[in-house]
């Protein structure tokens, strides 16, 4: 279930990244594009719980780490949105995915050629806004004054450390205008369809078996 996958980096280099997979060579194979940054931690258990339910429903699923995430040896600060999009595209090919399930900001890197779902998709500007806000609040608490506009200006040129994540200048510039787009055969799943509130809202990582049942049910029920 837990292994690695090899992804080609720039300049011909390759890196090995973590892979969580339920692969029993079945017809339906779902590529999971997870949430990002702090939301990735908060939704990790929920995401894998959904995959366990898909497995029980006879559907394979794959949750690949992208370079710079989790245990990756690649520095996060060197990653770009375009690079991550290419990475998920490569993952789709490597695992012969037939569908994609993108969660929150994962929708920004969902391969467009796969049918599937965007669960509670988040835009780049909203993601940045939350991270910048957390930073200005933390600064204020520490007795320093930081301004969101000035931080963004600096970030576009030099990159920024936001919420403990080092984001490169290119990534910040790309996220400023990144909107999730539904490709043909893809549809939105709103939080209201799962019942309850999104687990990414919580201050701490959580779990909700009823929501996992609901999301897996939608995927299993509507995957052709």
């Amino acid at each position: 279930m837990i292994s690695t996958w090899t992804i080609a980096g720039p300049y011909g280099a390759t890196t090995d990244e973590l892979l969580v997979a339920f692969d029993r060579a079945r017809a339906r194979r779902v590529l999971v594009c997870p949430a990002w940054f702090d939301e990735a931690n908060k939704l990790r258990r929920f995401t894998v719980e959904v995959m366990r339910r898909l497995d029980a429903a006879g559907i394979d699923s794959f949750l690949p780490d992208l370079p710079g995430c989790n245990d990756s040896l690649a520095p996060l600060g060197g990653q770009t949105l375009a690079g991550w999009q290419a990475g998920m595209q490569a993952a789709a090919t490597t695992f012969a995915a037939t569908h994609v399930l993108a969660i929150r900001a994962g929708a920004l890197v969902a391969p467009a050629h796969l049918p599937g779902w965007h669960y509670a998709a988040q835009s780049g500007p909203k993601l940045l806004r939350g991270l910048i806000r957390a930073r200005t609040i933390a600064a204020r608490e520490a007795g320093r004054e930081e301004n969101a506009d000035a931080l963004m200006e600096w970030g576009r040129a030099e990159g920024l450390m936001l919420g403990g994540w080092t984001l490169g200048a290119a990534m910040i510039r790309e996220l400023e205008s990144a909107e999730p787009a539904l490709a043909e055969g893809q549809s939105d799943i709103a939080q209201s369809q799962l019942g309850g509130n999104g687990l990414w809202l919580r201050a701490e990582p959580g779990d909700d078996s009823a929501q996992a049942d609901a999301l897996a049910g939608i995927v299993a029920g509507s995957a052709p």
Binding site: K126, R129, A134, I137, L201, A203, E204
Partner: peptide, 14 residues
């Protein structure tokens, strides 16, 4: 204790 800066940001956005 649950209300750290990241949680405040989440609270305001919500």
């Amino acid at each position: 204790p649950e209300l750290d800066s990241m949680a405040v940001a989440g609270l305001l956005t919500e």
